[in-house]
Each structure stands twice: as structure tokens, then as C-alpha cells.
Design a protein around this nucleic acid. Structure first.
Lengths: 220, 220
DNA sequence: GAGAGGGGGTTGACAGTGTCTACCTCGCCA
DNA sequence: TGGCGAGGTAGACACTGTCAACCCCCTCTC
């Protein structure tokens, strides 16, 4: 991980010049970028408003001029996270038939999660960010729609009966979310053993797609 | 373990009698039970040591006489949670061939998680409880071993090639963990729509088991 | 029986947190 | 020129986890 930030939010430090870009890059953006730096560096537990303010080089109250409260900051991060995830899925699920696209999308999903563990963890933390927040709903729905489109392609391909599209969507999402979650946070001895994360990321989505396409899913 | 049920913990209030069971039910147990009550009622966010102490009717420092720090309390809860989950899995995966047992275990897994959302969330929170805690490792490994045994039965049945046992274990665990996680915390519009949680809990593990058993998993 | 020791409880204090409130300081516009 | 609001500041409050000091009472030893 090291210095490589998620959306490459490098901490802008203090801008020495007070040029026009200061207006185009107001503290709101600085706060969000600093939040990403902090959450990837110190984890969700270290993501306090005051730590973010310190990282952004402002007083502990400055963020409140741009966000109503802590949750609104986190909700914005979550929305941007889902957008980044959706972008990754869209970029991956472009070529081939439905099965191939599902495998590719699943791989991209887990890869994105593992590459941005701090952000990814934030996506599924309703205790921190209400699931009903409009921006979270929008961005999350966008990511889900990519998977939905891929599953729909499998229905079009005839490898999946239409009535199973939504349950299979849940199965697919569950699998990639579960794998990502276990790879990032898994308390059990998965790693270090015979299992290799890269192999799992490549393998599990492909096998999931193949398994879904196998007989049994078109009839019942 | 004794009189206090690990799940369905009702707050014992103040014992009016100072009988012998007071020695068998010391504050340590009361703190854990109060923690479960608090986490199921107020979520992980509300699970502070002081809130637990208040719920147990003691001073804010009393818990520290039985646990080194907050993490040790939470680690104990996590270990008990994994034990409860393992019990549920063991109780479910008893009858039928490997495929049937995998479906039953998967169903039991998700049912347990949905029945104990506060506890379940705690199981995958390494920011709160270190994954390397010995008791967490033991209990978590126990739960995983139940699934491992079931997958091994599928290998014995000949529906799964032995080399795939461990990846399929990950797939199965990912799926049930992902489904449980999404049902509990999913920020996206899964519920309220055409999807019914009970149906998913019954359906997804069964389809997962059937999908694994389908052709493609025995050869590669 | 006397007294030492300690297990298990208490209160007090500290730094850290989110957030409310009040204040200051600009640039802008009438 | 003067008002005003956007966007920054510091201070204060209640809350948190945890360290330290204290105190009560049971038990063991002499």
C-alpha cells in the first residue's frame, strides 16, 4: 500500500500560493482527501474529525463549515467509494459473454476492495453512515446496477432463467463481498496457508460464474 | 458457562439474594451479558465500557477488574459468538449427503447471523478485536472447521475434486458471510423489494451447494 | 483472635472525541 | 463607508477509555 492513496488524494499540505485554484480546491475537497489518507493509514478507528482536521492542517472546527456533521463526511466518502467501485466494475465487465463478464466484474470488485481496504470497510458500516443517505443510495445503487446488468446478460445468453436473476445477483454480490471482506478482515487463518489471495481473487469469481452457468440454475 | 445463557441474555438485575450462585455468577459474566444486551440494543457504536458498566449496575471501572481492557471484553464476546455460530452449524449439518449438509449449514449460518446481528457484526471487526487473539482464533477456527468438514464430505461423495476443497470452502464461506452481511448491513435496496430475506436464506445456500456440486467443479 | 494481604469494588483525573456556541476576519456589494 | 455573510478560529461541554489511588471485607497465617 505505502504512499499510494486510493483515488490518489495526496495531502496538498499548505498551498503556498493563494491563486485561483484555491477556490476550485476548497477545504471541502481537502477534508475528503485527508479523510481517505487517514482511513487508509489508521483504519476506521483512527478516522476522527479532529484527526482529519489535523491532517488537513486546519482547526478542529473547520470541517463543520463544509459538512453538517461527522456522518455527512463519512457518507460523502462512502458515496465516492461506491462510485470508484462502480467505475472499476464498469471498466472490467466489458468483453465476452455474460459468464465471462460476471467473472471479470467479480475479480474487479475484489481487487478494488483489497486495493482500498479502508474505503471498502467504510461502505458497509451503517453504524457510521446511514444506509438511507441519498448519495449513498445513489452511488451504491450504481455499483449494484453494474452487477445487475451482467447477470441480465447471462439471462439473455440463456444460461440463467430470468426468475433467478435477482437471487443470483444476491449470490454473486454475496460471494464477492464475502471474499473481499474475508481477505481484508478475515480473522481466520486463510492467509499464510496454502491459500493465496491473488489466486482466490482470480479463481473464486470465475468459479462462481461457471457454477451459476452450470445446469440447475436454468430450471430450479 | 453455567446458568447464564450465551445468547438471549437477559440482564440479571441485582441479585437480591447473596447465595452461592453469586460466586458462580460473578461480575465477569454480568459484564459479558450486559455487553450482549447493549450491542444488540444500541449496536456496536453504543458498546462502550461505561455503557456496559451502567447496564450491569456497577462503576465504570469495575469491568477492568475482570478484563484487561476494552478489547479483551470484545474478544471474549467474539469468541463466544463464534462458539455460538459453530454450535448452530454443528447442529444443522448433521443429516444427508455433503451437498445437503452444506446447504443446511449455510442456512444455519445466515440464520444465526440474522438472529444475532450485534454479535455477528462484532465477529468481523478487526479494528475492535485483533484477529490474532488466541480465543478468537480458537473459536473462529472451530466454526470454520465445521464448514471444512462439510466440504470434505462433498469430496468424499465424489461431487468435488479434492484440490478444490479449500477454494470451495472459501467460496461457501464468502457466500454465506456475504449474504449475512448484506442482509444485516446492506446499504442497498435489497429488502422491501421483490426479495424476501427468508427466501434468500433458504435459497442461496441451497443454490450454492447445488452450484458447487454441478459439473465443472470436479475437473477444473 | 490479630493482623497482613489481596481480590474486587469505588471515585477521581486525564487526554481524546463530536459538536454547540461565540468570536474574528476577510471580500463583496449597495 | 458600512453592513454582511462565508469561512475560518478558540472555548466549552458531555462523553469515551484508561491510569491511579483508595477502601472494604474475606481469607490465610501466626
Amino acid at each position: 500500500m505505502s504512499a499510494a492513496p486510493p483515488h490518489d488524494p495526496t495531502l496538498p499540505a499548505e498551498r503556498s500560493d493563494g491563486d485561483a485554484s484555491a477556490a476550485a480546491d476548497p477545504l471541502r475537497r481537502r477534508v475528503l482527501d485527508a479523510s481517505l489518507v487517514v482511513v487508509e493509514r489508521d483504519g476506521v478507528a483512527g478516522l476522527s474529525i479532529r484527526a482529519v482536521a489535523r491532517a488537513a492542517g486546519v482547526s478542529h472546527q473547520a470541517p463543520y463549515k463544509h459538512f453538517e456533521n461527522r456522518e455527512e463526511i463519512l457518507a460523502t466518502l462512502v458515496a465516492e467509494g461506491f462510485d470508484g467501485l462502480a467505475d472499476a466494475l464498469e471498466g472490467a465487465a466489458t468483453a465476452g459473454d455474460g459468464v465471462a463478464r460476471l467473472g471479470a466484474a467479480g475479480r474487479a470488485y475484489v481487487q478494488w476492495a483489497v486495493a482500498h481496504p479502508g474505503s471498502y470497510r467504510l461502505l458497509f458500516r451503517p453504524d457510521l453512515v446511514s444506509a438511507t443517505h441519498p448519495e449513498v443510495q445513489r452511488a451504491g445503487g450504481r455499483a449494484l446496477d453494474v452487477l445487475r446488468t451482467v447477470v441480465a446478460a447471462m439471462v439473455d445468453d440463456g444460461v440463467l432463467y430470468g426468475d433467478y436473476a435477482e437471487p443470483v445477483l444476491v449470490l454473486a454480490w454475496s460471494t464477492v463481498h464475502g471474499l473481499a471482506s474475508l481477505l481484508i478482515d478475515g480473522p481466520l487463518p486463510l492467509r499464510g496457508g496454502a491459500l493465496d489471495a491473488d489466486a482466490l481473487i482470480a479463481d473464486v469469481p470465475a468459479r462462481l460464474a461457471a457454477g451459476i452457468a452450470a445446469r440447475g440454475w436454468t430450471t430450479g
